[in-house]
Design a protein around this nucleic acid. Sequence first.
DNA 1: CGCTCTCTTGAAGAATATCAACGTGAGTGG
DNA 2: CCACTCACGTTGATATTCTTCAAGAGAGCG
Lengths: 246, 246
Amino acid sequence: MPYSPTGALTTLPAGHPCEDCPVRPITICRSLEARTLADMRRMGNMQRLQPDQPVLHEGDPAKRVFMLTLGALKIYTLLGDGRRQVTGFMFPGDFLGITRDEEYAFTIEALRPSELWWFSREAFDRFVEANPSVERELYKMAAHELAAAQQQMVLLGRKTAAERVASFFLNLLQRGERVSGRTETRFNLPMSRLDMADYLGLTKETVSRMLAELRDRRLIRLETQSRVEVLDRAGLADMAEGHRAA
Amino acid sequence: MPYSPTGALTTLPAGHPCEDCPVRPITICRSLEARTLADMRRMGNMQRLQPDQPVLHEGDPAKRVFMLTLGALKIYTLLGDGRRQVTGFMFPGDFLGITRDEEYAFTIEALRPSELWWFSREAFDRFVEANPSVERELYKMAAHELAAAQQQMVLLGRKTAAERVASFFLNLLQRGERVSGRTETRFNLPMSRLDMADYLGLTKETVSRMLAELRDRRLIRLETQSRVEVLDRAGLADMAEGHRAA
DNA sequence: CGCTCTCTTGAAGAATATCAACGTGAGTGG
DNA sequence: CCACTCACGTTGATATTCTTCAAGAGAGCG
């Protein structure tokens, strides 16, 4: 069982179309931004994806590096009997497939119509080699990912179903705010209830029930099935942190 | 809530006294090994710790970097009401406290009498600056940590209690083998049942029951309360991956 | 040798999963 | 453009796993 680094490294290209609300911490990473994005455009190949179409499979030789420019992706691992854990969602500006292993260690699929740019691992390695500061940026990004992963361990190991959903929504809201640069009260859910459930270590039914509970407590409103308005942000934060209101 | 990178970065100083069986993937990281270890010895300050004594607290200003040379540590996060998630254990050769944040994002405590070397963040940063290849090594280590974190998410999100304990034991066994360089059938448990439980997202009672189950299935034997002999490695692996024997 | 803390085991309870049925809305084709 | 349809989402009833509460056993230490 190979150890398999770094599926998604997140960075935010300034002014990128980020119509879907992202969930992970973003490293504002100016050196990469300016240069990598430009180079990627020049050297890279654009690829479009339809929902459920895979970007890469666990076990595939790790020959490419990708940057998502439009849409949304999910990254997941399967157990032998089909149980699935979604370990993250990816949004425009995120890098994926960066690894030092021979093979990818997870599967990444499109949630909705998406656009991404890829280039070969060799080209990426050359680029990193030629730009030493990029190494530092990669490390920063990995460190951010690691911090997010630790928060997710707390969520999965110790939070109740309601707390998990509240935490998730708060993260989505906050990422939306980082993207737009201003306070938000709404966000999108580009993933299905099942994807949410597999990310939060729950079933889709439990997710649905917790949505109903947050709604009934007047913490959120479901504008549509995939768009949420936050009515009581402080209350949502309290619930996320386990300040358990009866 | 600050994002808080990289509590533990793991590397293995060759030939280090690693009497306790470690749990995380080890990056054999020769460039750091040879130079950092020597420098750390020269520049560093040695510190001894008794069980339960903290190395650092969540929220402390992140002014030092540590290397564990003897003993074992746990790293954890608390929720407001006292629920605790242990996000990792650390063993000789592991680096800790490396972060780009102003504050540490978690608490680290000794499990047993331990010895560690620290030096100031400035000294560490200078060292990294002066040795560009170290940046790459740090990135590698972070990537390994990230891979381990993703495996842990699968464990916490989707595995049953028995599978979690089996997975944990398999990891401990494998780390012991990486340390010794040969096949092992035994390993130590330097942490309490409660620490294991908080690492695996369970209660100490459930951990105890799962130990009994693994024992009754003749997969393991408890030589003492803190030393395990693996009787059926393949069976343990099957259980860890959820090939659910009735 | 006894004390205390941890660990184990048992019984009852709670949270979430599972199974099942019913809505609902987005997309499609008429 | 509307209606149909099917997948997705919601809700309800029951089952299961794990937790909680409680008590007893074992191990380490003064």
